[in-house]
Design a protein around this nucleic acid. Structure first.
Lengths: 204, 204, 204, 204
DNA sequence: GATGAATGAGTATTCATTCAT
DNA sequence: GATGAATGAATACTCATTCAT
């Protein structure tokens, strides 16, 4: 890493926080440089434009997501557990506690949209490998694995990352996952125990 | 309808088109009133703010969507066909030809997000009734119908309304739908013939 | 009073309250008609313009002020007491309890300015008569009565109607009044007992 | 003074003139930048808002007023002459010929109000020192000097800065000033000779 | 007497970006 | 590498007033 890169990384970190908490569109370049204590010129020395900075912030998020996924894959846990681990890691809030659910707030529609799209693209092959492992082990039985994985990711994002969900949502999700992957009934039911009850419908 | 309401409806229609083609955020009030040939004051006489106008535009879309869904339900077609018809109607482009896919373009993330959310909420009970009908007829066999419906809507939106999709996506979707609803293999395979091939991967 | 005059009087009353509490410039015609439950056209049927309405509101205030002053003059109290009574009545808050000091708030600079000017013009001759009465009785001894009265009104407005004042301000005011009118030391010292202590410096 | 400060000072000077001649509220930001030949952004780079600019303009006026007062205090003239000099300097028009009485025109109520308030606060201690000097010299004899000073300022502003005044107003003002400060009859009568007759009642 | 839809000039403010130093 | 003064197009919204019905 070059010398000037260090400051750039700091800037990305600051912007990442601000975009997440206030939304990309509600965060002005002025606010970023004020928080970073740098001059306007310095900002534009490092980034061509605000939008390009957003891309870099997102890349940073995606990279860290891939990292996490790879770590999970390398763990000594069962295939179903790896799947659930990777899906759960899509939610940044699981990792970064102080920032709570903000990526999924209305002010963050644009950023969520971009992240979600790339995340699905990037996680699909990784998760596909895991599923294939499961197929090889005889736990799953299915074809068109990448397409099934994509669907899995779409559903989990749509179900758990927006608004609230109920116990029934979980049970249907488990049922669907098993059938989608051609697993035996009950294979994925351990999911239920992992869910953060505080986010469930009716919870305060 | 009161007298003043007529002009308001015209305005909503114009804004609906503009929001859809250029995106909500990229459409300025100035552009709307210029197209509508009215004065600034007239605009603000009818709408408290641009955002409130967006809400009304969305309400209009939702209302028309409900109307369409109800018509489909009333038709003399099979239950699986009703389901597919309602799901397909979520895409406004099927109805309004001139506006092509724009609701799902990047500039329309915000609007798509809002519409999608409400659409799912509003279509879920309607579609649930249809599924129940199918259960009663013995075509389907499942519990937690509303949750399954919601998942169906999330998937179809995520799969077909964003970016491109392949034949494999369709076949997985059909498989998943059948299993999600507890239908016999092949029940939904007629879907494949309905898909607009021009939107498929590889197609221009 | 004509029939239509009744509604006009109601409107003036409503506007008077609004102007006083929110300031003339911060009160829009829309807000007035909404509170009065009338149409725009009706408003402009009764008033040529918003500014002309302000004049009428001020006239209303001045008229009521004159009325009060005349009543005080007619009372069976001493000349010094009449003087103080009239001066005190300049503050609308003494009469209209719910509206507290608002005429002298920053948002009401314009209205205060206009009222103050007219009030001084209108009260000067009335108060001059009272002073003359005092001269005739031998309590006061001075020439140029109207000019002295005007000065008295300017001081009392500037001292008591804006911001806070202290006991020393009162004692200087009393001293000055006595000397300005050529009264014996102690003639006006009863004023001190009448002052609303709650408005004094240091008071909560 | 930093480099960027120079342009800011120019802007303040321009705004000062415009606020004075046309009134604060009647001067738009557009007009200011057009006269200053700068871009909108430049204006908002230097000032947070139009209102904040007004505060800075007023501060500038107050500062120059204090400067003038201090110069007068340092002069080799009699105490009564110092007093009159300071009071007279409250009127900016005495100093800045091109701007004629505008601060006291109806369109300037707001600005006059703000200036007047601060001016009284700022001049009171300065003038009090002068009075104390006079007391020490045996010319005046009084207590509660700051309160008397404040009253003096209120009266002179109310009498000479608004509308017209007559010879009688002057003579009453002189009489009152002498008595307020406990001076011998005739001490302040030189004032009469200093008054600009062109502003007196009857004069055009 | 009363209505309310229509007007349109006017206003302050935002903000990503540039560039000479 | 870094600065910060300058840019100017863009934007949403206000509000007193008019007038046909």
């Amino acid at each position: 890493m070059k010398k000037g890169e260090k400051r750039k990384q700091e800037l990305l970190k600051i912007a990442y926080d601000m975009f997440l908490t206030r939304g990309y569109e509600n965060t002005s370049v002025d606010e970023i440089i004020e928080k970073a204590q740098i001059a306007k010129g310095t900002y534009y020395y490092h980034f061509q434009s605000k939008e390009q900075m957003l891309e870099e912030v997102i890349d940073m998020m995606i990279d860290s997501e891939i990292e996490t996924a790879k770590q999970i894959i390398g763990m000594d846990i069962s295939v179903p557990q790896k799947i659930v681990g990777i899906i759960a890691s899509m939610k940044p809030t699981e990792v970064e506690q102080p920032i709570k659910d903000t990526l999924f707030q209305p002010e963050n529609v644009l950023m969520h949209h971009k992240v979600r799209k790339q995340l699905i693209d990037v996680l699909t092959p990784l998760l596909s490998e895991v599923i294939q492992e499961g197929v090889d082990e005889g736990i799953f039985e299915c074809d068109n694995i990448p397409e099934r994985v994509k669907m899995l990711l779409i559903i989990s994002d749509g179900t758990f990352n927006e608004g609230t969900f109920s116990e029934r949502d979980i049970s249907v999700f488990i049922d669907m996952t098993e059938k989608l992957l051609g697993a035996e009934n009950g294979t994925m039911s351990f999911i239920y125990d992992l869910i953060d009850k505080s986010e469930m419908e009716g919870a305060q």
